[in-house]
Write a protein that binds this DNA or RNA. Sequence first.
DNA 1: TAAGTATTTGGCAATATGGCCAACAAGTAA
DNA 2: TTACTTGTTGGCCATATTGCCAAATACTTA
Lengths: 109, 109
Amino acid sequence: MDAKRKKYLDARAKVLKAMAHPSRLFIIEELEKGERCVCELTEMIGADVSTVSKHLTVLKQAGIVTDDKRGNQVFYQLRVPCILNFFGCVESVLESQAQDHAASLAVGR
Amino acid sequence: MDAKRKKYLDARAKVLKAMAHPSRLFIIEELEKGERCVCELTEMIGADVSTVSKHLTVLKQAGIVTDDKRGNQVFYQLRVPCILNFFGCVESVLESQAQDHAASLAVGR
DNA sequence: TAAGTATTTGGCAATATGGCCAACAAGTAA
DNA sequence: TTACTTGTTGGCCATATTGCCAAATACTTA
């Protein structure tokens, strides 16, 4: 694997890694509906504000969201609108797992 | 966030997490072309066989690949053919980052 | 059976992640 | 100014990840 290929893979892995956490997926899905301030997301997630803020930093550094401070609050928004189409394939993976599980139950394994 | 939503997010995060590593992305891209044995992947990645084997275990447990032992060798294949379409959006994120970077250079920031 | 090849597993060390609390920064309002 | 609200940052701890080596397992072939 040459250096160019490695760089390509590193960049893509970084974006996926930023998405690969339940709270961060939640944030992404929520921002699909429109911008949200940190306090709203914190309320919905039910973790400490500092925790949510750090998740948002991860998403921002990965280039997935941008922020906009207005008065007291900071509003986050999705930077790339397609981000959720992205999940069609994750669904397929999950569905095929479910099928396997059903099949193994039927066979009695 | 209710229990059902949490379960949904956990399942999707798990699949993304399994993909979020350069060597595992490499494996996924390589398997798009057809099945490969562990020794071929190891050769291409240039890490220890045991390391590659563990990456494959991660992908298998996430439901992304399946394995098939034939004789001495174990061949891995993608379980879900769409897995690479999946990357259109990652590309968008990376491109928008690149644009920002170019813009900030132009402005002299 | 003995030796060789392919792969997985266990163990360990280094590093990264996630989440909480406390402290700080910035804005608003009394 | 003082007090309050919203967010971010630093510190700390528990846990997870990654990667290597060594050992074990499974097949094949001499």
